[in-house]
Simulated assay, not measured.
Amino acid sequence: MISNQTKGTVVVDGFSLDYCMEGRGIPTLIIGSNRFYARAFSKELREHLQLIFMDHRGFVAPPEEPLENSAYALDILLQDIEALRRHLNLEQFLIVGHSGHAFMALEYAKKFPQHVLGSVMIGVSPDYSEAMHQATDAFFETTASAERKDLYAKNMAKLPGLIQAKPEKRFVDYCLCAGPRNWFQYDFDAAALWEGVETNMQMIDYVWGKVFRDIDITKDLDKLEKPVLLALGKYDYVTGPPSLWDKVVPVFKHIQVELFEESAHYPQFEQPAEFDEKLLAWAIENKLIDN
């Protein structure tokens, strides 16, 4: 049996960042909504790793008044992760990020390498630039089935009405409507994963729309000695085909790429047994955990 769940909150600059810990083993920090990602990783993984799910400033109730965008600068977000590390007295841990959170995991490892055993990046492209979006759209148009495209078009036609009714939920509603791009099973209903998830749209709009658009992950990669695992879904119609990484992977000193043949944007959820196996094998091979 896994250990009991532990919950808590770290308050930074007025933001209450919730976290929960489950499992046993090497601490493994997973960035993003603690509610969403606790549902997205397998229960079995908790038998091998102590999973720590952490909110960031995009998954909390928004401030009563909008802040300057500087409150959501990438370095500030990395300092929030560091605040949780200090709060939990973590000396060294694995750090995991899915989608845009993968950038946070990688950049934290660059900034605080003394505390990171290794980084795991899941379902992400090297940046979220316009060129990436164009490549992803082309990938969708040329490889998606007619049924997938038809459902996507029908869902997106509903989106403006949903946004008008509840603009504060537009991120979640977009993710749900874009399901045919997110999931290998194109008609999968992800509503249960998003239940109860708060969103701070100013942060999400700024960070996903500008910070991750302009990010250059190759900066200081030559100094990163810690191992990286890159997990990609073969049919990820959100962040594009794995080929987007062809020119970037060689810049890493220590990276292992795993392609999941029956996954789209969420291999950790869509192929949980295979994902867990690859993750643990990588950690053992790099002597991050015991065999």
Rank of each mutant, 00 (worst) to 15 (best):
residue 35 R to Y: 10
residue 21 M to E: 00
residue 19 Y to D: 00
residue 46 R to V: 08
residue 21 M to K: 09
residue 47 E to W: 01
residue 14 G to C: 07
residue 17 L to V: 05
residue 20 C to G: 05
residue 32 G to Q: 07
residue 6 T to H: 00
residue 37 Y to D: 12
residue 23 G to Q: 07
residue 40 A to D: 12
residue 4 N to Q: 08
residue 42 S to R: 11
residue 10 V to N: 06
residue 24 R to L: 12
residue 19 Y to N: 00
residue 37 Y to G: 07
residue 16 S to N: 08
residue 31 I to G: 08
residue 8 G to Q: 01
residue 38 A to E: 14
residue 39 R to I: 14
residue 19 Y to E: 00
residue 4 N to K: 09
residue 12 V to A: 03
residue 35 R to F: 12
residue 42 S to K: 14
residue 24 R to M: 12
residue 39 R to Y: 13
residue 22 E to H: 04
residue 11 V to Y: 04
residue 25 G to C: 02
residue 31 I to R: 06
residue 28 T to N: 09
residue 7 K to E: 14
residue 27 P to K: 02
residue 22 E to G: 06
residue 44 E to W: 08
residue 5 Q to E: 03
residue 18 D to W: 03
residue 6 T to Q: 09
residue 37 Y to A: 11
residue 4 N to R: 04
residue 9 T to W: 08
residue 23 G to L: 06
residue 6 T to D: 06
residue 12 V to Y: 07
residue 30 I to G: 02
residue 9 T to Y: 06
residue 40 A to Q: 14
residue 6 T to L: 09
residue 16 S to C: 03
residue 10 V to H: 03
residue 31 I to T: 11
residue 38 A to Y: 11
residue 33 S to P: 13
residue 20 C to R: 09
residue 12 V to P: 04
residue 15 F to C: 02
residue 25 G to Y: 05
residue 37 Y to F: 15
residue 38 A to D: 11
residue 11 V to F: 02
residue 20 C to S: 15
residue 39 R to W: 13
residue 11 V to C: 03
residue 3 S to M: 08
residue 27 P to Q: 08
residue 47 E to T: 10
residue 4 N to M: 10
residue 36 F to A: 10
residue 35 R to C: 12
residue 46 R to H: 04
residue 31 I to V: 13
residue 30 I to H: 09
residue 47 E to M: 05
residue 45 L to F: 00
residue 46 R to D: 00
residue 12 V to C: 05
residue 40 A to C: 14
residue 14 G to A: 07
residue 5 Q to V: 07
residue 21 M to T: 03
residue 11 V to E: 15
residue 17 L to F: 03
residue 5 Q to Y: 03
residue 31 I to Q: 09
residue 13 D to G: 11
residue 38 A to C: 13
residue 47 E to N: 13
residue 40 A to W: 03
residue 13 D to V: 08
residue 25 G to V: 06
residue 18 D to T: 01
residue 38 A to M: 11
residue 42 S to Q: 11
residue 34 N to K: 13
residue 36 F to H: 14
